[in-house]
Design a protein around this nucleic acid. Structure first.
Lengths: 231, 231
DNA sequence: TTAATATTGTCGCAAATTGAGACAATAAGT
DNA sequence: ACTTATTGTCTCAATTTGCGACAATATTAA
């Protein structure tokens, strides 16, 4: 334990997925005066569950409780140990290293991904960072350390879990159209899906509840709205 | 860092699967004079990759290099912090706590599963343990801490990965029959599979190489032997 | 009012995959 | 030769999937 009550050598990083403009986006932080971009992360308090630490951090960054959260890998190579980077961040913030030398030590980072409804979130920077903003997956800035690897592995895991864990609906508002859901699946998988087949498949799962139609004002048939039926 | 050069608060545990007698088995250690059973685990050196630490430990426990290894979860609840258990183990070994107080601290454990050829292994205890032996999954002793949860999650992950990662053949010798491979799949999935369907499916993957027949001396047609075709 | 247009819900059909049994072809033992 | 257990493969039905088609809207334009 150190003076701040955090476990040494252990950090977490989170890949927070949202869906907007037909694209998958993630939250990226930018540190003051450094040009460094990073995933939102944090540390684990001495008397706190690892999972709770991540939820606490996500709550601060997004304002949301009860997020869909999945742990997917612990990154533990020696190559990711670059104390000079953390030193740069601290110095750029005029932060004394006094009492914070533990931050310059080696960390193993447990990575999580979260799925949230884009509209519900107000991204919030922390004390060390300028900004916390959404970036589309294909327009990410250069990320520090191995954070690009973490994002890649998060996306891969999300794809693998797509059908198995019925993950799609966590990225949408309570009510959504079939087309919107299909766009989410396409963004995650990175490929077009056949409309008829997709609709049939999803409906056959029996997990959607159909609501009244949505009149968009556009010159065509109005689609039904659906919600995710809780078991 | 501590006097032994290990990272504080970080451990790993491994679920080492082998296949014998038509059953899945795993390696379990028993600590001297305590009646405590545990998964093989260990710690990470200060200048060592997490994955390398696990391979090092597995090499000591099984004698094998180049093991099929998969990380599946980091267990980090506060509930698993029970210093009195580690103290019991140390005392039962007349080990002084001098310089080892870090062992009584809280640990987050990164769990891995390994798949190995049962016949290739001579289970080897370490300094603190009586024995390191195979136990069938349905005949496990009571495991300490949350190790039973770790085993359950390992099995679940193995099942989920079964087709996706073509995992079955790592549990068999180089040459094996189709029936043996089917038994492995059945043991992992916990259900019977249809013989014809299984054979057709596996062969259609195009990853098996067929060799000469195996004459078992039994009163029936001899099966072909197969090996896993490396890409 | 009627026609044009874009999009939706659903259906039909062919292709592919899966589940389950059947049958001929063995290796021994009797 | 006859019996028995097991293997490799096949067939056929049932199910799932890929893909296009069609009727049913909601709105705008004529």
């Amino acid at each position: 334990m150190n003076s701040k009550g955090y476990l040494k050598h252990i950090a977490y990083d989170s890949v927070v997925f949202g869906f907007s403009g037909e694209k998958l986006k993630i939250l990226i932080m930018k540190y003051h005066n450094t040009g460094l971009f990073a995933l939102p992360g944090g540390f684990v308090k001495y008397d706190e569950d690892l999972n709770d630490a991540v939820r606490r951090g996500l709550k601060e960054r997004t304002g949301l409780d009860n997020i869909y959260l999945e742990q997917f890998y612990a990154f533990g190579s020696v190559a990711r140990y670059k104390p000079e980077i953390m030193e740069t961040i601290m110095k750029a913030n005029n932060q004394s290293l006094e009492g914070y030398s533990w931050l310059l030590d080696r960390f193993i980072s447990v990575a999580y991904y979260a799925l949230i409804n884009y509209e519900d979130v107000v991204p919030t920077p922390d004390a060390l960072s300028d900004s916390c903003d959404w970036y589309a997956l294909d327009e990410l800035p250069n990320l520090m350390l191995d954070h690009a690897d973490i994002v890649a592995k998060a996306l891969q895991t999300l794809r693998d879990n797509l059908e198995r864990k019925l993950v799609g609906m966590n990225l949408l508002p309570t009510l959504f159209t079939m087309k919107e859901l299909q766009k989410v699946y396409e963004a995650i998988l990175g490929e077009k899906l056949h409309r008829g087949t997709f609709q049939r498949k999803i409906l056959s799962l029996g997990i959607l509840k159909r609501h009244e139609k949505q009149y968009s004002g556009a010159a065509h048939k109005a689609p039904f709205l659906y919600s995710f039926e809780q078991k």
